[in-house]
Write a protein that binds this DNA or RNA. Sequence first.
DNA 1: TAGATTGTTAATCGATTAACAATC
DNA 2: TAGATTGTTAATCGATTAACAATC
Lengths: 310, 310
Amino acid sequence: MAVQGAACGIYDCAQCEHLAKGLCSGCVNANSSLIESHDSACAVYECVSKKAISGCSNCGETACTLKRDVESLCPMRSRYENSRWWAGRMALAMESRRTVARVNNKRQISERVITRLRCYLTALDGLAKEGMSNVSSWRLAERVGVNAALIRKDLSRFGDFGVPSFGYRVDFLIERIRDILGLDRRSKVIWIGAVSLSLQAASINRLCNHSCEITAVFDIDAEQIGETILGLQVLSLDDIGQVLAHADIHAAIIAIPGPEAVAVSERIVSSGITAILNLSGETLNVPDTVRVSNFDLVGELLELCYYSRP
Amino acid sequence: MAVQGAACGIYDCAQCEHLAKGLCSGCVNANSSLIESHDSACAVYECVSKKAISGCSNCGETACTLKRDVESLCPMRSRYENSRWWAGRMALAMESRRTVARVNNKRQISERVITRLRCYLTALDGLAKEGMSNVSSWRLAERVGVNAALIRKDLSRFGDFGVPSFGYRVDFLIERIRDILGLDRRSKVIWIGAVSLSLQAASINRLCNHSCEITAVFDIDAEQIGETILGLQVLSLDDIGQVLAHADIHAAIIAIPGPEAVAVSERIVSSGITAILNLSGETLNVPDTVRVSNFDLVGELLELCYYSRP
DNA sequence: TAGATTGTTAATCGATTAACAATC
DNA sequence: TAGATTGTTAATCGATTAACAATC
């Protein structure tokens, strides 16, 4: 730990602007609910969003600098969450991070928009199959189940795809959305969990139509390794570094059940994966730079129970 | 069709306030993009949200009444979507429907809140397993990855579960959330798609801990019927009426791929199912009174491609 | 041309967050 | 008592919708 002996305060990682909490061991009694599970010396790092004990949980950097001015402002037993001071620091840190995200482009398009775009794409594929050559925002809206104005707004963000009084050409719009989602060039993804993949054979076809391809299958179950699923040999997770080194792969599906999924996620992230679809139901612990999309079947079923009450 | 020979206008179903569009065949040329796939006589019903050709797609009622005053207001070639008049009708219809929903209780709690509650529950289960007996909103927030104020707000909606300066008792909070989600009494759900269920054995345990039980398995694949999965004999969908008649079951998981899922959903809804988790990737066509939650694996993968672009 | 439908701005709506008095 | 943390109100933020001039 770099900041040994530092006073009670709140720290920023000099490397990545990740905000961490530092608790002085002198606060043990006063602030017991925050510190009870840790017993290190004077400076215990406690990340707001992640729960790291040492160093910055975001970038792994341990040379975090203590902002000295903190000492005078932060009382020994500060009210972290609600203090104006903390709120200010928090807002500042979030703002700076947001700016970085904005510069790195992308993330400024909200996740909702991306989700809707792929829904439009699915609907348009259907329309094309039915032989429709053009469609109005209103008709597409009806099909997808959203407001027509929202569709026009979503699309106009990326260019003028429509023609007033005529609508949108179906084939052209499909082309453009595929372009936006990056489906214009072949994408490769890896699948972790052999058994679950064998089930999805039916979906894989639809996937291939969109130049998205499952390139490799991994498993942690020794019994599965070596088997062949959908024409792919199941590999050990030990081979992942090798596979990713030789190909342009950044996306993975974690489809193994249980807590092992957490370790698997850490492993694949360190091998270069930047987007994960997590079907394990576990909460993954990955850097902010990695995009995780969660689907928890059990959680969904519990929700279902709520909605099914008579 | 009940309103044969009606003029060009917009109709309400007298039965359920469902709003439908009526197009006069006289508009064919003017409004071709809207009517091209239909060739019926003067009054073609075209539901705003569903795409029904005859009768009210919401309640099946065919005795829809034409509001005669419409004739004078709606020009032969009206601008449906943007006219103030249409907007007014729409708002009115939506409002009346919303009122009904509010009276039937439930839906006033937003879906987001329900989703978060089950996330809190999962986190609390974890805390309980780790031996924590109490937790502050701040600490729980850290674990779930949301704002502490939001947790307090969500929970306070249902009662005063916390104690100032102390936080929340973990076991008590688990109890309360289970109660809110209706997990305090045994819930039964049916699963459609034998093969996919066989995969989920690992998840089913977690499910049982929450008094949610998969009671019956159905399939449309003759080869699967009669097999035994997780101790349940796979039944034909023809038996569904019989099964639902004898038990208090209102929730179903559709886990078969392909367009057959649409017909299946219509069938189970008519047998009394009111909540569906749809894993088929197809867009289901069910009344507003049925709650559908969709998960489309292929769609999620397409999104993943977007986020994985370097 | 007349009418339909777009792209876009302003208005609305709902959800999240900040702040703080009340409370243990 | 002093300090921590709740429940709740007001402020902010973002997403959706309505409206309409521009355009084909």
